[in-house]
């Protein structure tokens, strides 16, 4: 397309040979980015003056968070535990359910194109839905509380692990699978014994990685009433009780750090 609007330049060498030089895309890209920035500034009422005048407010808040309110700790640990448990249950169930869905979405396992397409569409739509939005919908269906949060995490894990898993299944070697089919196994059995062992380490590692991220997500789900520590964050920020918010954030940072360290250790062992 681009080359039709701006035809390539013809360069003639001294010895008579010619070369076509495609026009550089850089200027066009530059103009698009500049225009995009300008329009975005108009759209979002971005105002540098406000930033200069009131920017320090942000640091005032951060300053209020230090030192954190230590004696807030007893009321934190229960919601924190809820958050972690929500992530564990949601991630585990999500990873388990993702196996059959990924099987259905892999073109080398399922020959029926319609089934593959439906499974992929299902995964794409789930993956696109921001976790907070699915949590919000879940609170309407399952009521306020941890169940809604677990469902939201379950759905996200299912979509994320499912997508990576079906890609791995498609890349797996089919030699053993065909051999097993030839000795009379069904396709599902052959999948279980020939393909699954190949993708297992990667699958476990992906699930763990997803779990790490889920702890972070779970922390904010409380904001829409889906249980966990997010509720405290919402309250603290609402009441401008920044020292408590600081404490919650500190605990959250420690938890996330610990979980990431442990999970990273196991992921390295797997690969």
């Amino acid at each position: 397309m681009f080359d039709k609007i701006f035809p390539p330049e013809k360069i003639v060498l001294p010895n008579g040979k010619t070369v076509l030089e495609k026009r550089s895309r850089t200027p066009l890209l530059f103009i698009i980015v500049l225009l995009g920035t300008f329009l975005s500034i108009r759209f979002t009422n971005f105002d540098f003056n406000v930033l200069v005048k009131r920017g320090h407010e942000f640091f005032v808040i951060i300053n209020d968070m230090i030192p954190p309110k230590w004696d807030y700790f007893p009321s934190i640990w229960q919601p924190l535990l809820d958050t972690i448990m929500m992530s564990i249950l949601g991630s585990t169930l999500g990873s388990l359910v993702s196996i059959p869905v990924a099987y259905l979405a892999a073109t080398n396992m399922i020959k029926n194109k319609v089934v593959v397409m439906v499974a992929r569409l299902f995964l794409s739509i789930l993956r696109t839905m921001p976790t907070l939005v699915s949590a919000l919908i879940a609170t309407f269906i399952f009521g306020l509380g941890t169940l809604a949060g677990t469902v939201a995490i379950f759905l996200f894990t299912l979509a994320y692990v499912g997508k990576l898993l079906y890609e791995q299944i498609e890349n797996a070697s089919l030699d053993a699978f065909e051999a097993m089919e030839s000795i009379g196994m069904t396709r599902v059995q052959a999948f279980r014994y020939a393909i699954f062992p190949q993708v297992l380490p990667n699958y476990l590692s992906t699930s763990l990685f997803c779990f790490e991220g889920n702890v972070r997500y779970a922390a904010i789900l409380g904001y829409v009433g889906a249980g966990g520590i997010g509720l405290l964050l919402n309250e603290g920020l609402g009441w401008r009780d920044y020292a408590s918010v600081g404490m919650v954030l500190l605990m959250l940072a420690i938890t996330v750090f610990l979980i990431e360290t442990v999970s990273e250790y196991f992921r390295k062992k797997l690969i």
Partner: peptide, 22 residues
Amino acid sequence: SKRHKLKALTALDQVGILDKAY
């Protein structure tokens, strides 16, 4: 400049990979 581009292309021609220039 065009002069430099021509020189570069000539050098590529000398080693027989003019068609790979871009």
